[in-house]
């Protein structure tokens, strides 16, 4: 699972998909997650890193992460490479 290499992400969390012209704003946690995806981290590694850094249970975060990943897929921002 990788973030499409064309996707531009600014430091402030503004995301631009140059293929579709769509743009989005990410909250700080989503920025962290997307950076981890760009670094090639797997879903399990992301869960481990975020739950160790913040006070959130694995099950609660996993639910949010899967929603977020679904959304990225839906907007053609993730590839399954």
């Amino acid at each position: 699972m990788k973030v499409n290499s064309d996707i531009a992400i600014s430091q402030s969390g503004y995301v631009f998909n140059p293929q579709t012209g769509e743009s989005f704003s990410l909250n700080p946690t989503a920025i962290e997650v997307i950076r981890m995806l760009q670094d090639g981290k797997r879903r399990e590694e992301i869960v481990e890193e975020i739950t160790s850094r913040y006070e959130v249970s694995q099950s609660a975060f996993l639910c949010d992460l899967d929603d977020f990943l679904d959304m990225l897929h839906q907007y053609d921002m993730l590839t399954n490479e």
């Binding site: 064309d6 631009f16 140059p18 293929q19 579709t20 012209g21 743009s23």
Partner: peptide
Amino acid sequence: TDKGKAWAGVTIKD
């Protein structure tokens, strides 16, 4: 716009 005209747009790569 209500006439279907672009009032803002962005260049894309497709």
